[in-house]
Amino acid sequence: MTATLALGDDALVLSHRLGEWAGHAPVLEEEVALANIALDLLGQARLLLSMAGDEDELAYLREERAFRNVQLVEQPNGDFAHTITRQLYFSAYQRPLYEQLASGGSAFAGLAAKAVKEVAYHQDHAEHWTLRLGDGTDESHDRMQRGVDALWRFTGELFEPVEGLEIDWRSLRSDWLESVSAVLDRATLTLPAGPQSGAWTAGAGRQGIHTEPFGRMIAEMQHLHRSHPGASW
């Protein structure tokens, strides 16, 4: 249950954040790309939350403290570079995580084997934009570096072991660091030197402790369902 909610909430919350770009993306192609990535994540979330119980009740009727997503995915979109950084950090984590789950014998193996192929495209998308913005104009470089620096302190939590997931966390962390460092380097960006988590952040999202913007995000996400219980399309 802990593991199912951790994986499912990561996907659900990031999906919702990406959905917030609809109508606001800098170009039409990105509008469509971010919505498609959001849809992939929503598909994962639906399967995972259905494994844990009723998907709608879990998504729309839980209080903030009951969500088990990492704090990284709940961070507001910021500018486009900020969103791309969040995508880079998260997809570089989710891909090797799902690769490990796909080769294991747990209940997540089937879903992970399927989703990892989709996540490979999410990572590819984030890496290309990181290169383009980092090695672009002075302005895009500065904004990308600001995003990379600002979200760095939320990355430590990704490697806090989750009960019920048979993962080699040490190798997950080294895979992540290797791919992220390589992309940042090619993008002429600097890998942040600061800590990957503060005392107040380590593992906190997985324990139900979230950052301030998350409350407002789920208020919006849950508003319709709570105002009109049982409503359907």
Binding site: E29, E30, V32, A33, N36, D40, Y121, D124, H125, H128
Partner: peptide, 8 residues
């Protein structure tokens, strides 16, 4: 042009 189009 883009890795994502009218559908996923």
């Amino acid at each position: 042009l883009s890795r994502f189009s009218s559908t996923a």
